[in-house]
Every structure is written in structure tokens, then in C-alpha cells.
């Protein structure tokens, strides 16, 4: 997830800088760092029998959020 800090949150800091300058970049990345950990925590239980190993390394981002969204609506696809 140190890699996520660089690529994902590095990008997020650019976006935050565009919104609120230097202070925005610092505040934005601080919150994003917390969000990253919570997102991993959210997605690991969902994938506990399958890709939990993968999400621990590459998650904490959209992969985690969309696993959660997917898990909510997957039952619709099982045909009851």
C-alpha cells in the first residue's frame, strides 16, 4: 500500500492542489491516507475466500470500493 500512497494518492494530491492549492493538497492527502486504510478494511472480509491476498496489496482504492458495491448487488445476478 506504500505503492498506493504514491500512485493513487500522489494523483489525489494533484487533484486537491487544483482545488485548494498547497493547503488543499496536504489536507486532501491526509484524509485520503485514512480513507485508503478504511477501504481496505471494508473490502478484505468481502473477498476473504478469494482475492483478499490481492486486495491487501493493490486495494485501498476503487478496487476496494467497487468490491463493496459489487457485493451489494451480486445477489440480483444469482437469480434468487
Amino acid at each position: 500500500m506504500t505503492i498506493t500512497c504514491f500512485f493513487e494518492i500522489g494523483t489525489a494530491a494533484i487533484i486537491a492542489n487544483g482545488q485548494g492549492g498547497l493547503r488543499g493538497a496536504i489536507a486532501g492527502s491526509a484524509v485520503a491516507g485514512v480513507a485508503m486504510i478504511l477501504l481496505v478494511g471494508l473490502s478484505v472480509p468481502i473477498l476473504s475466500g478469494t482475492a483478499a491476498d490481492w486486495i491487501l496489496i493493490f486495494g485501498g482504492n476503487d478496487f476496494s470500493l467497487w468490491s463493496f458495491i459489487g457485493d451489494l448487488i451480486a445477489p440480483i445476478f444469482s437469480g434468487g
Binding site: A16, N17, L22, R23, A25, A27, G28, N61
Partner: peptide, 24 residues
């Protein structure tokens, strides 16, 4: 790129707490 949710959060926080003038 999967940064989207983190970038949206950072962007909104940045807008809330940031200052327009000084860029990084």
C-alpha cells in the same frame, strides 16, 4: 485509474480546507 474515489475525497477536502492562491 482506481485512484478515483481517493482523488474525489482529496479534491473535496482540498476545496473545503484549501486556499485558492498558493499552489504546491
Amino acid at each position: 485509474h482506481p485512484t478515483t474515489i481517493l482523488s474525489l475525497i482529496a479534491g473535496m477536502v482540498g476545496k473545503l480546507f484549501g486556499t485558492k492562491g498558493k499552489s504546491s
